[in-house]
């Protein structure tokens, strides 16, 4: 009796399942086709090509000439500007990312409060992130910090400030994260007599840690690629004494001013490896401090 009833049921679901999703699998690829073409021709292909070019001498106009590890060896052992660029970028990432995130978290907690003005404040703090990447703002920086950009440490500091100034973007994400923490946790903490610092350490930080991690990864990757400010402040030279010679700026100079495109490709790949390594490290370290509620993922 049961077998008779059982049999048709899966048959119906299977049939409707085929109709629901599988009409023609090619339809999915039709929707995906622009992306697939882009991924192949503008991402994967160029990645492979730039790996090849990094082992050549190439000036865009004559055929690339194979030179083995030459570009890498020259960058790592001979070219002093390369290490200056690494140093400037390293300092910039190490200082600007933590300071920016701390400012973002602080302001997010500050304005996370029941008030009709919250939306306006949030927008006002966010505005610099929309403007900050522009040449216009870099020009403003150049004029306002005119006295600073002549000395190496201060020139870099001016660029760090330009980046920190744009803390509104991670702030907005922190704020949305804070608003998702169930208020019962805070009520319970208050009942237990926990002070503000204790509440922050035991509730806010762990509950927010996935969002902190997201912002940390995203900001770090972006910080490695900052270009416009350094170009504008230093006229594209990275001066004074290479203090603002960001890696991307030096890569641009090698590739598109000196047309040493093999060398620039090698630099591009080293950047890719460095960013991937730092990201992997951040993921690795995240196991120790990032807390996923319910541990779903």
């Amino acid at each position: 009796m049961t077998t008779v009833l059982d049999r048709p049921v899966p048959a119906v679901t299977a049939a409707s399942g085929r109709r629901r999703y599988g009409e023609r699998p090619s339809v999915a690829y039709l929707f995906l086709s622009p992306w697939v073409v882009g991924a192949l021709l503008l991402t994967l292909g160029p990645m492979a090509a730039s790996l090849y070019l990094s082992f050549t001498d190439y000036d865009l106009f004559t055929a690339p000439e194979w030179v083995g590890w030459d570009n890498y060896v020259r960058a790592l052992t001979v070219d002093p500007h390369f290490w200056n660029a690494v140093e400037a970028t390293g300092k910039f990432v190490l200082i600007s990312v933590p300071v920016q995130l701390a400012a973002a978290l602080g302001v997010a907690m500050l304005i996370n409060r029941r008030s009709r003005a919250q939306g306006t404040y949030r927008s006002a703090f966010y505005a610099p992130s929309l403007l900050g990447a522009s040449v216009s703002v870099a020009v403003v920086w150049r004029v306002i910090f005119n006295d600073w950009i002549g000395t190496p440490e201060r020139a870099l500091l001016a660029l760090v400030l330009l980046s920190v100034w744009q803390f509104g973007a991670p702030m907005v994400i922190f704020l949305a994260g804070l608003q998702q923490i169930p208020s019962e946790y805070y009520d319970a903490a208050a009942v237990d007599g926990a002070g503000p610092w204790r509440t922050f350490r035991s509730i806010t930080l762990p509950m927010l840690s996935p969002v902190i991690f997201f912002n940390l990864v995203y900001d770090t990757i972006r910080a490695f690629q900052v270009f416009t400010g350094a170009y504008v402040v230093s006229n594209g030279t990275g001066r004074p004494s290479d203090s603002t010679l960001f890696y991307t700026l030096y890569l641009y100079e090698k590739g598109f001013v000196e047309f040493k495109m093999g060398y620039a490709s090698a630099m591009g790949w080293m950047l890719l490896v460095a960013v991937a390594a730092v990201t992997a490290l951040l993921f690795r370290l995240s196991r120790n401090w990032v807390f996923y509620a319910g541990d779903e993922s």
Partner: peptide, 13 residues
């Protein structure tokens, strides 16, 4: 996450 600079030169080519 891919840095644009890693593919800049082949794209330009």
């Amino acid at each position: 996450m891919l840095p644009a600079h890693a593919v800049l030169i082949p794209q330009y080519t």
